[in-house]
Amino acid sequence: MPSKAPRERDRAMRIERYETTMAREVAELIVEGFAEHRQKQPKNLLTPPAPWSTADELLATLGSDALHLDVSHVAVDGGRIVSAAIAPQSGEQRGWWRIATLPSHRRQGLARACMEAGESAAAMAGIEVLQTWAVVDSRWEAAGGLLSSLGYELEDPERRNITMVAESWTPRPLTLPEGYELQTLRIEDLPEWMEVRNAVFGGDAGTEWFEQRFLNRPDFDPETWFTLRQEGRIIGIASALCIEHERDPEMLRGGQIEWVGVLDSHRGKHLGEELVAACLNAIAERGFLPALLLTQPYRVPAVTLYEKLGFRTVAGWHSWTKRLA
């Protein structure tokens, strides 16, 4: 498709194909359009999102040949770009990299118009599927509403990740059935800990997985990693990480509960509840509340347990996909 002539600086609202000469203006639009989202608490402290890109950093993509120029579109009002839907071009994957509208121009259908223009161009180019490249936070209700109204779908809503948070917790004694004992993790326990982890969650990872993922973290504390034993054998596991990232110690600080599980042969005894309580005790006693955890809606018993202990779902996140007609 030949490039359009330079756009006129008039006052008419219109949708145009994106051109790399618009890179600086669109970069500044994206920064402003996402400003309010920068203030939201992260949905995962263990692996927090990368820092928000600056306008100069966005320029590296917006001014390059990495974008699909036929699919990417902008809305122009009075000579100013006020909304944009930008699509990258990489191998077989096609979708939306950034969709943003200035706060002053929201609720006017501009992002929708940009996306519809892009979808038409994508269909003409033989592209069969579009998707969001980054996961979409459900707290961005307008984004989810827009995608849903345009026919985008979550591939498997029940298996999307959700973040649950407990804002407060008063430490309490644990109540374990006779014959069970709670201990903290010892390094020599790792092979057996991994056996339980693999049995509960699937996989065949070895101790090197744990060493690479947790053991070398500066906030690793074996006193907040728990093993539940019967007759000396580990039958349940749970961990509480007290995390404070130097990049943003106020925003990226809190407790995160990971890898809570009990072997099938020991379920039905409220052992999972006591393991989570042990984690919450550790987090509260160290002053790292609120506590968050990640799970999926289809894990109904786990979600029910977490709600019983004061957790509430604050965010769901997943990619959206649309098959073009």
Results as ranks from 00 to 15, higher is better:
1 M>D: 11
3 S>F: 09
4 K>M: 14
6 P>S: 03
13 M>V: 13
30 I>T: 02
33 G>Y: 11
48 P>L: 06
49 P>N: 13
50 A>F: 12
53 S>F: 12
55 A>P: 10
55 A>N: 03
57 E>S: 10
60 A>C: 08
60 A>E: 14
66 A>L: 13
69 L>R: 15
69 L>K: 13
73 H>Q: 11
76 V>A: 00
77 D>G: 10
79 G>P: 03
80 R>Q: 13
84 A>V: 08
86 I>T: 06
86 I>Y: 11
90 S>D: 14
92 E>R: 13
100 A>P: 07
106 R>C: 07
108 Q>Y: 11
110 L>T: 02
110 L>V: 04
112 R>A: 12
115 M>V: 14
118 G>P: 08
119 E>A: 14
122 A>S: 11
123 A>K: 13
126 G>I: 05
126 G>Q: 03
127 I>A: 04
129 V>T: 15
129 V>Y: 09
131 Q>F: 10
137 D>P: 04
139 R>W: 05
142 A>E: 14
145 G>Q: 13
146 L>A: 09
146 L>M: 10
147 L>S: 03
148 S>E: 15
149 S>D: 08
149 S>A: 15
150 L>Q: 10
157 P>Y: 00
159 R>N: 13
159 R>H: 10
167 E>F: 06
167 E>Q: 12
170 T>L: 07
170 T>N: 14
174 L>T: 05
181 E>I: 06
182 L>N: 01
182 L>M: 00
184 T>M: 01
190 L>E: 04
192 E>T: 11
201 F>K: 04
205 A>K: 09
206 G>L: 00
209 W>P: 05
209 W>H: 09
211 E>W: 05
213 R>S: 09
214 F>Y: 15
215 L>E: 14
217 R>T: 08
217 R>M: 12
218 P>C: 07
221 D>R: 03
225 W>E: 12
227 T>L: 11
230 Q>L: 12
233 R>G: 07
238 A>F: 00
238 A>W: 00
241 L>S: 12
242 C>Y: 04
245 H>W: 15
246 E>T: 14
249 P>K: 14
252 L>W: 06
256 Q>E: 15
256 Q>F: 07
259 W>P: 03
260 V>S: 01
264 D>N: 10
265 S>W: 04
272 G>C: 03
275 L>R: 01
277 A>H: 13
278 A>K: 03
282 A>P: 00
282 A>F: 01
285 E>Q: 14
286 R>D: 03
287 G>E: 09
288 F>W: 07
289 L>D: 01
297 P>K: 06
302 A>F: 05
302 A>G: 01
307 E>V: 09
307 E>N: 05
308 K>R: 15
312 R>C: 13
312 R>K: 15
316 G>H: 06
319 S>T: 14
322 K>S: 03
322 K>M: 02
